[in-house]
Amino acid sequence: MSRRDELRKVQAGRLSAQRAPKATQVKAEKICGLCSNYSEGAFSGEGAGSCRILKVKSDISADPPKYDLESTDGYQTMNLMDAGKCQYYEKMSFVDKDGTECSDPRYRRSMRQMQD
């Protein structure tokens, strides 16, 4: 698969997540946003981010999950994505939910769905 194809697949995944019906969204128990390997993107108000372990060809929603540890670009995922099957999941011990400071991709999860 060429890099363009890979990226096209990533973008399609991201756009489809954005277009998923909001009215039916259910928050999973283990989500990427609560994993210490997840990093929020700069445009992260929409919930997009990436994984520092998994690479672009991974697919943690597949059954069984597909893990790519070799490619250059990171796996693009979403804050609220179900990470229940991911074997690299590491629950964060410290989450910053205060939205009045600026982006801290490693810690901050200030979106409404992440509030207690």
């Binding site: 954005q18 108000g45 929409e46 919930g47 979106m111 769905q113």
Partner: peptide, 8 residues
């Protein structure tokens, strides 16, 4: 739109 939906 997504961001607004997520706004706390």
């Amino acid at each position: 739109n997504e961001e607004i939906y997520n706004d706390s």
